[in-house]
Design a protein around this nucleic acid. Structure first.
Lengths: 239, 239
DNA sequence: CGATCTGTTGACTGTTATCAACTCCGGTGG
DNA sequence: CCACCGGAGTTGATAACAGTCAACAGATCG
């Protein structure tokens, strides 16, 4: 168990939706945890598992993947500062697979810390609620996108959302961020075939809105990308 | 304001995910509320509204509809016993439109009732949490369906889910239930065009798994429908 | 240096959107 | 009573979009 500076991403994430006092930050700094590393496509949480701690993502990306082996649809993607399995504090059973997209560093935090947080800081508890609401809003937003947009819009929207969420925790400065996930991963998020994902990305490149090489994405024309994606970030509830 | 037997559907809904004591049921029976009627396609909650009470659905169906996108994608559907805007107890701002699918009866319940419920019954509070988790799981499940299934599977799945959720609150006995929503509504839920929705329903009829006439759906071959839908109801967390 | 994963391309097929026209039905007003 | 209207359901023709299969090129890694 250790405490300290590694939780700044979590604090950034909470502060992106609500104001916190220095007492609140102290509380977060004293969060007990144990650190673990995962390699690409490794399972952080397996389906059916019973969790008694939450994963706080410190570095890298993770995703919830449907258990059905045939296509492995991804239902959400998570960036540093996120706690993808926060809901296990209410019901410990894990119903899907939490997978690493590229190398990942995770801090495991006991459920008790989150359960007791309401008694220690009303503000932090409320910020956690807002994060949960933002996650649900993001799910609804993806539902709209999968239900009504074609592949180019889907891919563009994904890139926009990742960029904005990374910025909220102080990453993706200069519209450039690591993309250790594969084109097949993008396909599983956007609900398209890997071959079509490839063609869609080429289309984005041809339109000169982004570069994707050496496992890095660089957005070269943010307004154009936002336009293609019809991206409106209100649903993320960022201040 | 009134109290009483009208909340049996809500109690059924809670008891479908958790066990409640007779004290808990008393607590629910004393729930303060005011009843309102809505006609088909009327807005129960408008986008941007600030709620200080929740809607408990008593009769009929309601749905969350996306505000902006031209096609009005529906992101979730709700049946009697559901509280579609329970999340407004945490953050009162409504971010989408809650619309009636057919005639609807709603009980408006003050936020305070839900906020104070934890202090009065741990069990009821936990049951409410489980309902919220089931709603999110349903969203994720639809994400998988929209991302990886074709229209026949989507429509079949929708019918399966509605039937099971109605059964959980004592409706849809005999695999027959009212369907006041239009084929265009089904299209907006399944993320397909109204014309294609029509052809998909005809396909289901031709396969003799259901009848849909006089605003009523009758499932004539449940196992076949479940097979077409690849329906696995675990995610609804029903006992 | 071979094995494997990822990205890329072309050809073909299947699913779904779109447009337009038409029917059927329940209401509404003359 | 009937003419009319609008909404819902239905049908066919066509076009756009995306999936699948197969092959290969480039990267990465033991």
């Amino acid at each position: 168990m250790q405490t300290g500076f590694v939780f700044t991403k979590f604090a950034d994430h909470l502060m992106s939706v609500a104001e916190l006092s220095s007492d609140d930050l102290d509380l977060l700094a004293r969060m007990p945890s144990s650190i673990r590393n995962f390699s690409s496509h490794q399972e952080i949480r397996a389906c059916g598992e019973h969790a008694n701690e939450c994963c706080l993502l410190l570095q890298g990306y993770a995703c919830w993947k449907d258990t059905d082996h045939s296509n492995g649809q991804i239902t959400s993607i998570h960036v540093p500062g996120d706690v993808p399995d926060l809901y296990t504090t209410l019901s410990p059973r894990v119903e899907a697979r939490l997978c690493a997209l590229g190398p990942v560093v995770v801090a495991f935090v006991p459920h008790a810390f989150f359960r007791d947080i309401g008694a220690r800081s009303e503000r932090v508890a409320h910020a956690l609620s807002l994060l949960t609401l933002a996650d649900v809003a993001s799910l609804r937003n993806w539902l709209v996108i999968l239900g009504s947009c074609e592949s180019l819009t889907r891919a563009a929207h994904l890139i926009c959302e990742i960029a904005v969420r990374l910025r909220a925790v102080g990453l993706a400065r200069d519209n450039r961020f690591p993309s250790p996930f594969t084109q097949s991963d993008l396909a599983a998020i956007c609900g398209i075939s890997p071959v079509h994902a490839n063609r869609t990305i080429q289309d984005l490149r041809r339109k000169r809105v982004l570069q994707w090489q050496a496992r890095t994405i660089a957005i070269t024309d943010w307004p154009a990308l936002v336009g293609l994606a019809n991206f409106k970030p209100d649903y993320l509830r960022l201040r």
